[in-house]
Design a protein around this nucleic acid. Structure first.
Lengths: 353, 353
DNA sequence: TTGTACGCGTTATCAT
DNA sequence: ATGATAACGCGTACAA
């Protein structure tokens, strides 16, 4: 009967440190000290008495009150663009692990690729006084970010940086990843590479990858030719299907280079519809559960997602002021996982020509 | 220089409602009223003056302080067993959407299938005075849960219920799902069905599915024969491989029924190693990104994950006391997505025999 | 080593 | 319709 109706219950009556103090016959201060860093300042007697009272009353400190006065919330906010992306989930996992190790609680918000939602989430996290922010941004809320930075809130950007926002960044070494991929494709004897990406839309990692692709295709002009296809927002992918069809028809040793996991899925679906999953070279950034199961095994460039997530948290806590000046941009190398989609395909085609 | 070194910064100096009140020449009370539900009690004049001051000073209310006095945190805690499970992610998505609609912020904690971690997360969420809890439990922390229930904290269990804990539950209609699956397999002409599951370990949905499978295989004894395989913790799966090999050898129309997404992945990996992905019937609970791409398309029993997530939040907010008595256990039906792994396989085998 | 007293930013209560 | 003031539960100078 004492529950609120039609809405969630208020915080119920709690045991407070005041009551513990009374029960133990000590002052609030001593109880507070027992709970915090200064426990060693207390005498044995008090410690045991307090401990007993806490247990007897079932006291649990109130983090809310604690952070109001103590100004430490022990909360870290994380904003991710797309929680259905396996990269996001695995990277979150790394952040989470580091949080646990460091005694923080992680509040995760998903923007669902909606930039307006990104702004709202950032405001809410700010309102809860998170002590730091790990952001996988959509890149459109520069002003909101800038404001947060100016307030002195520690921020780390993951996978994507934003021009003009000077904060720590952690992500993949995109040039190295593309180079590794193209080297592999060349070695396997592929000749024509179609790079498929989602719209760049101010997302730095996508842009960096495309630029690296174009630059390095240039540098291999005797060996490889390249083309670019940008998928649009609606998931019709009719353009993708036609493009792949043409590639299959016109090239003697064609390959597709997928920019990330969502692209890989769409490319595979398109190839599947063409019945051509095994008729073309395929390499993709981002390892996924099912990479080994499709198209004779998809060759991938795996990101060290756990390391990236943990590095993000570490950077956040350390503040990254290693001597001052520019904030650091930490990158991690990709690892090539060769599978059938490249290794079992090119040479026969080569001998065909 | 004013930043903390070696640790995250303290909350920086904020604009408070006190300062806004001064700036606008009104009392704190009026500002607080302006911010809350009682805005309509204020005169036009005050409203515009306060609005102006808030904008000028860039004031943002402090949710921490607000919840200390107001006893409403607007926080919902969610504890999930495995964030790498696609079911979990999609269901989270539903919870999240509902939270947004209702004005709550979601704090997600992942237990990584570690029961000790589940306990710790629950304690932390309690310490932050979340107003409600959505839990995908491992089922081992009955006492912790019971304690939370007794404190009057609203709780909803998702996918799994715990014996003796009387709280709202939302999940799949497991009997219906199994029936739908077996009907389909029978229709397609399969004769022998191997049901593969992870260890039951007190997880109600797994148990319910197995029981439904066994019961319904009984009821179809002329048509189908069944067997059960429980995967163990280590991901060696040698036993699984041998079992599948034997099934392929001995049965004329064999099929595998996968209990959930993680099982499906392991079964596919095992079949892939046997080079038999297309030589056996395959049906799985849980739709995944790649369901259509593997084994000629895996037939799935899709859960309405968004609806389940939203129902969980709705139940939480409404309190679910629809007349008193037992708390409700709401179930949602699965949807059959027939694909090649069943439709393109059985009949030819049938004619073989 | 221990206790007293005040403040964190807000909302609830009571008064006007 | 508006304001003054006391809490909320805890941390922390400062005093003892």
């Amino acid at each position: 009967m004492d529950r609120a109706r039609g809405a969630l219950a208020q915080r119920s009556k709690r045991i407070t440190i005041h009551e513990v103090a009374e029960d133990a016959g000590v002052s609030k201060t001593s109880v507070s000290r027992y709970l915090g860093e200064e426990r060693k300042l207390l005498s044995e007697t008090l410690q045991t008495r307090i401990e007993a009272s806490i247990a007897r009353l079932g006291f649990r400190p109130d983090r809310i009150a604690s952070s109001l006065r103590g100004r430490r919330t022990r909360l870290i906010g994380m904003v991710v663009a797309d929680i259905t992306n396996p990269y996001t989930v695995m990277m979150m996992h790394g952040v989470e692990t580091a949080c646990r190790r460091l005694g923080y609680t992680l509040v995760v918000c998903n923007t669902d690729r909606d930039t307006e939602l990104e702004r709202k989430h950032l405001e809410v996290l700010r309102a809860y006084s998170v002590e730091g922010l790990v952001i996988n941004t959509l890149g459109q809320e520069r002003e909101t970010l800038q404001q947060l930075v100016e307030e002195g809130l520690p921020i780390v950007l993951v996978d994507r940086q934003v021009e003009g926002i000077d904060v720590l960044t952690v992500g993949l070494d995109n040039r190295q990843a593309i180079r590794l991929g193209l080297d592999h494709l060349a070695e396997c004897g592929f000749e024509e590479v179609l790079y498929v990406t989602e719209p760049l839309a101010g997302i730095s990692s996508r842009r960096e990858r495309v630029e690296a692709f174009e630059t390095q295709i240039q540098a291999r002009s005797g060996q490889l030719t390249g083309a670019l296809l940008t998928l649009d927002g609606d998931h019709q992918d009719q353009a993708l299907i036609s493009r792949l069809e043409r590639l299959l028809r016109e090239s003697t040793a064609p390959a597709v280079f997928c920019a990330n996991a969502p692209v890989t899925l769409r490319v595979c679906q398109a190839l599947d519809r063409l019945g051509a999953l095994k008729d073309i070279g395929l390499i993709a950034i981002d390892e996924q559960d099912w990479s080994a199961l499709v198209a004779g095994g998809i060759t991938t460039l795996a990101q060290p997602t756990d390391a990236i997530g943990e590095a993000a948290m570490t950077a956040l806590v350390q503040g990254g002021h290693d001597g001052g000046g520019e904030p650091s941009h930490r990158v991690f190398p990709a690892t090539l996982k060769p599978r059938g989609s490249t290794t079992a395909r090119a040479k026969p085609m080569h001998s065909n020509a």
